[in-house]
């Protein structure tokens, strides 16, 4: 069986992969150190990230990140001003409540 894609691994990890494929995926994990390692490291990364609740990205980082959208992979005219939003109030994404 072929290795699981990133999409399938994430879905398997969340218990949200269609049943038949999930069964295949589980037996694949048993024999594939690479995919099993991916699941392991995903688990580690999420556990660590959850511990970093207090961290907030800086205003500069937010500005730089937003600016990535402006060179435009697609030639869509910029519809928003390039100026970054004030980060003090907006830079705390609420991925976690």
């Amino acid at each position: 069986m072929t290795c699981l894609s990133a999409e399938e691994l994430a879905a398997l990890f969340d218990g949200r992969l269609p049943q038949a494929r999930a069964a295949q995926g589980r037996s694949h994990l048993a024999g594939c150190p690479r995919c099993a390692g991916e699941i392991q490291r995903l688990s580690e990364a999420l556990q660590d990230a959850a511990r970093q609740d207090a961290l907030r990205p800086s205003a500069e980082l937010l500005a730089q990140a937003v600016a990535l959208g402006h060179p435009g992979v697609r030639p869509v005219a910029a519809e928003v001003p390039a100026r970054p939003v004030p980060a003090d109030t907006r830079a705390a994404p609420n991925e976690r409540k």
Binding site: A45, D48, A49, A50, Q52, D53, L55, R56, P57, L61, L62, A65, V66, L68, G69, H70, G72, V73, R74, V76, A78, E79, V80, V85, R90, A91, A92, P93, N94, E95, R96
Partner: peptide
């Protein structure tokens, strides 16, 4: 994905904190 820059800004605002926490490790 459709290339909407305003959406990109909202996307960044939603996920940058999570990415930052991941990157910290």
């Amino acid at each position: 994905v459709a290339g909407n820059p305003a959406a990109w800004q909202r996307f960044v605002e939603s996920h940058l904190g999570f990415l930052h926490a991941l990157a910290w490790r």
